[in-house]
Simulated assay, not measured.
Amino acid sequence: MITLEDVESAARRIGGRVRRTPLMEVAPQEFAPTAWRAWLKLELLQHTGSFKARGAFNHLLTATDRGLLTDAGVVAASGGNAGLAFAYAAAQLGTRAEVFVPETAPAVKVAKLRELGADVVQVGVKYNDAYEAATKRAADSGALFCHAYDQPAVGAGQGTIGLELWEQTAGELDTVLVAVGGGGLMAGVATALAGRARVVAVEPENAPTLHAALAADGPVTVPVSGVAADSLGASRIGDIAFEAARATGAEPVLVTDEAIVRARRAVWDRYRLAVEHGTAAAAAALLSGAYRPAPGERVAVLLCGANTDPSDLTGAVEPTH
């Protein structure tokens, strides 16, 4: 588990190394007609194009404080965004990074990893394939292993977004919609906002890791596919995320691939924000009606990543409610 104290410590530790991303208020009728106020948290403007930089810096800086970051550098397993974040953080801290990604990782993410100076190893077709290869490499080399989502310092770093949201809304926040893959982002935000605002954990129907875990009373492996699999491709929710969801009462919601595609295009058409399909899942819950706010509810949608190919973002799409 991670605690609010862990998140607050992470905020102090990574301050000055990550961006305080903007909060944009939007007309409620554009996302949630029954809501009183609505915001988009623009975490897609974070270093490397996703929220992952927060957890990466917190993990590496925590390891540095404990003498665990050596000349062997870091090894990470990632579908893309976590690898980018660890590569960026490692470069900023003057250490080397080796990143294992599945062969299905988007070319744009692989190219960015190499631009950041990381050694990239493509293994298998799923995140788990890359994960197994990375853990073996870390054990053999003595490098610091960096999990994409299931490490306390990583989750605590992601939770700093929740602290920012609370401050930026002056505490006038009821609900945050967060996309869930392995669950590190949800775990951190839910922990940061526990007792203050609810978290709606949005998953693609084709990757229901949290739903399956809650039904089974523990993390289980599920088949994963669909348009958001490149960023929400974990086949098993993290232990930390499962415990955080159960402890904080995070509400799970499923969305279809069609709803995700429509939401991604709607966000582009209305605000010219190019987001990943995984990121669009959070918006899809509102735009499709999978989550309906209560009258007067104050709602924020966390737009968490922008590492996408924008070539198909053409034409207006009007989502249904």
Rank of each mutant, 00 (worst) to 15 (best):
T48D: 01
I161Q: 09
Q29E: 13
E103K: 14
L185W: 10
Y271I: 04
V74N: 04
D230Q: 09
L185T: 14
A97E: 00
A90K: 07
G162D: 09
F51K: 09
A153H: 06
A139Q: 11
L44F: 13
A247D: 11
L69C: 03
L40I: 14
T70Q: 07
L303K: 05
H211I: 01
N206G: 11
G296V: 08
V108W: 01
E132V: 11
A300E: 02
A10P: 01
C146W: 02
T256K: 03
A229L: 03
E251K: 04
E205I: 05
D150R: 12
K41I: 11
S141N: 12
V202R: 05
N58S: 04
A107G: 04
P252N: 08
V125Q: 10
R137H: 12
V154R: 00
D309G: 05
R20A: 06
A133F: 01
V99L: 04
E115P: 00
V26M: 03
E8H: 02
D230P: 00
V26N: 03
V26I: 14
D119V: 15
V224E: 06
V180Q: 08
G289M: 07
L44C: 10
Q46Y: 00
P152G: 15
C146Q: 05
A259I: 07
A87S: 09
L93F: 05
G305R: 05
A197F: 06
A212N: 08
P252Y: 06
A139I: 04
R292K: 14
A87E: 02
I260L: 14
G183D: 12
L93P: 02
G94K: 09
Y291D: 10
D119R: 15
E203R: 09
L210E: 07
A56M: 03
V202P: 04
L45H: 06
T48G: 01
A156Y: 06
D129F: 03
G188T: 15
P252D: 08
G171E: 05
A281F: 08
V110R: 09
E5V: 08
A216I: 11
G157D: 05
A148H: 02
L93D: 05
R264E: 11
D312V: 12
V7S: 05
E43N: 10
W36E: 14
D174S: 15
A156L: 08
G79D: 02
P208E: 14
A201N: 13
V202W: 05
R272S: 08
E258Y: 04
A213H: 09
H211S: 10
A234W: 04
E318K: 07
A63C: 13
T279W: 08
D230T: 14
E164I: 08
K41A: 10
P319R: 10
G142L: 06
A245S: 13
G155V: 06
A245Y: 11
L210H: 06
L185C: 10
A134Y: 03
I260H: 11
A82S: 13
I260K: 09
A215M: 02
R96F: 00
H47G: 00
R13G: 12
G155C: 12
L185F: 14
L116T: 02
C304E: 06
P33V: 13
V180W: 08
G159C: 15
G181V: 09
G162W: 06
D6R: 04
L286H: 12
A56D: 01
R137S: 12
G183W: 11
A156F: 08
H277S: 10
T169N: 07
Y291W: 14
R54Q: 04
F145G: 03
A90V: 07
A207V: 07
S9D: 15
G117R: 05
R196T: 08
R37G: 09
A72K: 07
G80Q: 01
